[in-house]
Amino acid sequence: MAKLTIGQKAERVLKLLIALRNARIAAALAQHGFTDADLEEGWALLRNVTRTRLDIEPDSSPVDGDALAALDDWENKWFVISGATLQRRHPEIHAWIFRNLSQTEGMAVIVSVGTFIERWEQIDKPEKDGGFGQAGQDAKKILGQRGLTNEVIGEAKTLLEKLGKVGGPLPDLDKIAEEDAGFLKAEKALWSWYLEWSAIARRAVTQRSLLRQLGFLRTSASGKEEEVPEDELDAESDAAATPPAKTEKKKGG
Rank of each mutant, 00 (worst) to 15 (best):
M1P: 06
K3Y: 07
L4N: 12
R12M: 05
A19G: 12
A19F: 07
R21K: 14
R21G: 01
A23R: 14
R24T: 14
I25C: 11
I25W: 13
I25P: 09
A26E: 09
A26G: 04
L29G: 01
H32L: 13
G33H: 07
T35R: 11
T35K: 10
D36C: 01
D38Q: 15
L39E: 09
L39N: 04
E40G: 02
E40D: 14
E41H: 02
E41A: 08
W43E: 14
N48A: 14
V49C: 07
T50M: 05
L54H: 12
D55H: 08
I56K: 15
D59Y: 06
P62V: 09
G65P: 00
D66L: 12
D66N: 14
A69W: 04
D72F: 06
E75R: 07
S82R: 01
L86N: 12
L86I: 12
Q87N: 15
E92C: 00
I93Y: 06
H94E: 09
A95D: 15
W96S: 09
I97N: 09
N100C: 03
L101C: 08
S102Q: 12
S102Y: 10
Q103K: 15
A108M: 10
A108C: 00
V109N: 02
V111I: 12
S112K: 06
S112E: 14
T115M: 08
I117G: 10
I117C: 06
R119V: 02
W120G: 00
D129R: 05
A135Y: 03
G136R: 04
K140H: 06
I142H: 08
L143V: 06
R146Y: 08
R146E: 15
L148S: 07
I153E: 13
G154A: 13
K157E: 14
E161W: 00
K162N: 08
L163G: 07
L163Y: 11
V166F: 09
G168V: 01
E179W: 07
D180N: 15
E187V: 15
L190A: 10
W191K: 00
S192I: 04
Y194Q: 09
W197K: 01
A201H: 05
R202N: 08
A204Y: 01
Q207R: 14
R208W: 05
S209N: 15
L211T: 06
R212E: 13
R212V: 10
L214D: 13
L214C: 10
L217Y: 07
R218S: 05
S220Y: 02
A221W: 00
S222L: 10
G223F: 11
E225C: 03
P229E: 00
E230H: 03
A241K: 10
T242I: 05
P243I: 03
P244D: 12
T247S: 10
T247C: 00
E248Y: 02
K250S: 03
K251H: 01
G252R: 04
